[in-house]
């Protein structure tokens, strides 16, 4: 196993989260706005082809944060456009990100079936 890559993922992912934390504390943006900002940023960086370099460098340190989710949408769109043209612009993004989205919806539904929210004790 490539432990050096794991270390790089740890540091890169951590730094991206620090940027998010500074945004939360300094701008008082709500969680939804933070997530939207990161995804949109990821799509743009991915579309420009720049985010690829970060993924090559840090692996999951770049793909696991939501910017990676955004770049995946962009990457999927562009590769689909190359093969199917305009339709690809509409199908490619979700196709590439389908795993994460479907998993979140499905597991979310299951969790709501079996679990009940509780008060934060702290």
């Amino acid at each position: 196993m490539d432990w050096y890559m794991v270390l790089k993922a740890f540091i890169t992912g951590g730094i991206i989260c620090i940027i998010g934390q500074i945004l939360i504390d300094k701008t008082k943006l709500t969680p939804a706005r933070i997530l939207v900002t990161f995804v949109t940023l990821g799509v743009i960086l991915g579309g420009l082809g720049w985010y690829k370099y970060l993924i090559d460098f840090a692996g999951c340190g770049a793909t696991v944060p939501l910017t990676g989710f955004g770049s995946l949408l962009a990457k999927g769109t562009i590769s689909e456009v190359q093969t199917t043209g305009l339709i690809g612009a509409f199908t490619g993004g979700i196709k590439a990100a389908a795993g994460g989205i479907s998993a979140a919806i499905f597991f979310g539904y299951i969790a709501s079936l079996v679990s009940k929210p509780k008060i934060k004790k702290q």
Binding site: G13, G14, C17, G20, I24, A32, G108, A111, K120
Partner: peptide, 28 residues
């Protein structure tokens, strides 16, 4: 939510935060 309260963006920005933001209103 306890992890999120402790870690803030640390658990929000990774895809875990996205999943949590779908699961938590579903439960609520």
């Amino acid at each position: 939510n306890k992890i999120g309260k402790f870690a803030g963006a640390g658990s929000l920005i990774p895809i875990t935060g996205f999943a949590n933001s779908i699961v938590s209103p579903a439960m609520e």
